[in-house]
């Protein structure tokens, strides 16, 4: 992302954006892009509005009304006198988002945009990004370690591990790939596993403390429960679940961290 945004020079290769090398017609290309790289930086002696006005002047085609609208969208329009140095982390992040969207970009590049936001703020920004994509057709290129958030807004997901793109998949396909399972919470998960293996021919399962997860395409939850109870095991919970994104990608990269 930093290479796309001219912060770091590529050591090799080309960066293509809008169908051409990003250094060709650089002005046109970057006029269409908005960005946040982690925690955004602004001039500490200035207010949010003053900061945005400077960026608007650099961009040349952004009106004062657009600056005000962007501040309204992120809920900072009332902070007229507060300098950036007095902003909370969440407010700084909101101002970063306002700076990224004030010129109505065609492409938004966001690196960890929900850093420091409270749960309500996260939900608001998520809704806003979805709406921006839906109503204005803005392409949003977002990176995050909070995969549950990504899961809620992305149409296409790519996983980079050790600097290499491991997988790129659209969400519909991903949902198909994520495995469904039934989780039984029982008094003795190890015994339960043996019983189900012997009596129901269950082979694909996983044990976690008092829980046994059964990954089978065809579930017969009632029958499994009956077998466990008949074998004197106490069943305290039965849930039908789906692998979350974290689990899916953790398995994809062999259990390591997701970069």
């Amino acid at each position: 992302m930093k290479m796309m945004l001219q912060l770091v020079s590529p050591t090799a290769g080309k960066i293509m954006m809008f169908g051409k090398d990003h250094r060709e017609q650089m002005k046109d290309t970057y006029q269409k892009i908005g960005s946040i790289i982690e925690t955004p930086g602004f001039y500490t002696n200035l207010t949010g509005q003053e900061n945005l006005e400077i960026l608007a002047r650099f961009r040349k085609n952004v009106s004062k009304a657009s600056v005000k609208h962007a501040l309204e969208v992120v809920g900072l329009d009332q902070e007229k006198k507060k300098p950036f140095s007095d902003y909370s982390l969440g407010m700084k992040q909101r101002l970063g988002i306002a700076a990224a969207i004030m010129h109505e970009p065609e492409l938004l590049i966001l690196d960890e945009p929900i850093n420091g936001l409270d749960p309500i703020g996260i939900s608001e920004i998520r809704q806003f990004l979805c709406e921006l994509s839906r109503t204005k057709g803005t392409t949003i290129f977002i990176s995050s370690h909070v995969l549950s958030e990504i899961e809620q807004i992305a149409d296409m997901i790519g996983v980079i591990n050790q600097g290499k793109l491991v997988e790129e998949v659209n969400m519909k396909e991903l949902h198909k790939r994520k495995r469904k399972y039934v989780a039984f919470t029982v008094s003795d998960a190890l015994s339960a596993a043996k019983i189900l293996e012997n009596q129901c021919n269950v082979r694909d399962y996983d044990i976690q403390d008092h829980m046994i997860k059964i990954f089978e395409t065809e579930f017969n939850v009632g029958y499994f429960n009956q077998i466990l109870v008949e074998n004197q095991l106490v069943v305290t919970g039965i849930n039908t679940c789906e692998d979350n994104l974290e689990n899916y990608f953790s398995e994809l990269i062999g259990g390591g961290g997701i970069a």
Partner: peptide
């Protein structure tokens, strides 16, 4: 010091 290069440099203006 104020970490503002990463806000300025992605703008359509040369270094």
């Amino acid at each position: 010091a104020e970490n503002t290069w990463k806000t300025i440099l992605p703008l359509p203006i040369s270094r």
